[in-house]
Simulated scan of single mutants.
Amino acid sequence: MTNWMGVVSRDHVQKGVRLGIAQVNHGKRTPLERIRPGDGMVYYSPRTTYPDGPPLRAFTAIGRIAPGDVWQATDGDFHPWRRAVDWWTDAIDAPVAPLTGDLELTSGPNWGYALRRGLLTLSDADFATIAAAMGVPERVSAYPGG
């Protein structure tokens, strides 16, 4: 299993959690095809709303990719690619600042630049640290291989 982090504004994350889906890079298919059922998924939200909302800089959703394939949705004239996710809805937002010294993700001097890719892999240790900060550490070990 692999753990992933999508970079998405909190308003879009909240919509995805309500719908039980993950969507990254403005609905592109290719990034989602790298993700597999059982993989961990975390969203980091640099802002509250897209595109110019107030800064947030927090982890805003966490869960596991559900069984099934990538599919294309219809949202008006927008046709984004999506994946089903079992979101841990009892998780709380976790600001990144208190975690920067504990995460491999933030260990480099220009770690924020990597966020521009929109989808990154996370180590198992970072996934567990983020889950603990979000109040759901027990969920990580509840999955086979987690």
Rank of each mutant, 00 (worst) to 15 (best):
A132Q: 14
A132N: 02
A114K: 12
M1Q: 09
V140Q: 00
G53C: 00
V17S: 12
A22P: 02
R139D: 09
Q23N: 10
K28N: 15
M134V: 14
W87H: 12
V42N: 06
R10L: 14
R36W: 04
L122Y: 03
G145T: 06
P144F: 06
R57S: 15
A125N: 05
R36L: 05
P109R: 10
W88Y: 10
I35Q: 04
V85K: 07
M41A: 14
L99I: 06
A131G: 11
R36T: 09
A73N: 03
Y143I: 15
G118W: 10
N3R: 08
I62W: 01
D124Y: 01
R10S: 06
W87C: 07
P95M: 06
P144E: 14
Y50N: 11
P67I: 09
N110P: 05
P37H: 03
W4Y: 06
R83Q: 15
G68V: 12
G20A: 11
W87I: 09
M5H: 00
G53T: 05
Y50H: 07
S107K: 11
W4H: 01
P144M: 07
R57K: 14
P98R: 09
D52Q: 09
R64N: 04
R117Y: 03
R36E: 10
P55V: 00
G135Q: 07
P144Y: 02
L103F: 00
V8E: 10
N3P: 01
G38D: 15
M134P: 01
R10M: 00
W111Q: 02
R82D: 03
L19F: 10
T121R: 12
L122P: 14
T60L: 02
N110A: 05
E33Q: 11
W87A: 07
M5K: 00
L122R: 10
A91E: 07
G20L: 05
A66D: 14
G38I: 04
T129Y: 00
T2M: 08
S9A: 15
Y143N: 08
S123D: 07
D93T: 13
R18E: 12
R47W: 05
D69K: 12
R82F: 07
D93E: 15
R36H: 13
V17I: 10
L103A: 07
I65Y: 05
H12A: 09
S45F: 03
L19I: 12
Y44L: 13
D77E: 13
Q23W: 04
R83V: 07
W88F: 09
T48I: 13
L115T: 11
V13C: 08
D11R: 13
V140G: 01
A132P: 10
R83W: 03
T106M: 15
R47E: 00
A97Y: 10
A58R: 13
R57V: 03
P31R: 03
G6P: 08
